[in-house]
């Protein structure tokens, strides 16, 4: 395989499906609700988390032998908050437009349970390279679900994708609006994010019975 051993590949691919942070571990739901009303925000959030989780996991992994276990949660929180704020400041100074798009996400990234979860469950016990792969994998798994949810919410709620009116114009009654189709405004409200995630969980578990927990 060259660059990635079989075990390393698993680190990246597992969280994409069979150990997905949202649908299987049910983490990071709060931000999945908050920002998936449109596809663009979902993509921006996915990329931001990918970056923060990848770098954060490496930093925590490098520090894992010197962090006192009594205050490890606080240390993790400080590391991720400092990382996010520094990136935010740098963007504000050199890429102002981009930073304005991201400003909403800063708070959501810091409090994202997936980030704390991976620091705690993986980076504290593994080397930097494997931690990096684990971070990238989990962030990608999170991002995939976010993008799927964002896709359906924007398409069915606003009739647009990335801001483009793909279904026609709802006010001028063109495209499929001409035959009486209406946007479902309910899709834009947060409960529908939960329901869409629920449907994804249902589909995933009915395709792979091994994922169903027995009670």
């Amino acid at each position: 395989m060259g660059l990635l051993s079989k075990k390393d590949t698993k680190l990246i691919l597992d969280p994409l499906a069979d150990n997905n942070p949202i649908t299987i571990q049910v983490l990071g739901i709060c931000s999945a609700l908050a920002i998936t009303a449109e596809l663009k925000a979902s993509i921006v959030m996915a990329i931001s988390v990918l970056f923060v989780l990848g770098v954060g996991n490496v930093v925590i992994s490098l520090m894992r032998n010197i962090i006192p276990s009594k205050i490890r949660i606080i240390v993790q929180l400080v590391v991720v908050a400092a990382l996010v704020i520094i990136v935010d400041q740098v963007l504000k100074a050199f890429a102002y437009e981009l930073s304005k798009t991201l400003s909403v996400f800063v708070g959501l990234i810091i409090t994202n349970c997936i980030i704390m979860g991976r620091f705690e469950a993986f980076a504290l016990g593994n080397g930097p390279w494997r931690s990096f792969l684990d971070g990238v994998g989990n962030a990608a798994g999170y991002g995939v679900i976010l993008i799927i949810v964002g896709f359906f919410r924007e398409l069915l709620g606003s009739g647009t994708l990335l801001g483009f009116k793909v279904l026609g114009d709802p006010i001028e009654k063109t495209g499929i609006y001409a035959i009486g189709y209406e946007n479902n405004g309910f899709m834009l409200l947060s409960p529908m994010a939960l329901i869409v995630v629920g449907i994804i969980i249902w589909v995933q578990r009915s395709k792979n019975k091994a994922l169903i927990e027995d009670h």
């Binding site: 920002i35 009303a37 449109e38 663009k40 925000a41 400003s103 909403v104 919410r153 606003s158």
Partner: peptide
């Protein structure tokens, strides 16, 4: 910091 896709 309004909600993306809604207030934003």
């Amino acid at each position: 910091g309004e909600t993306p896709g809604l207030g934003a």
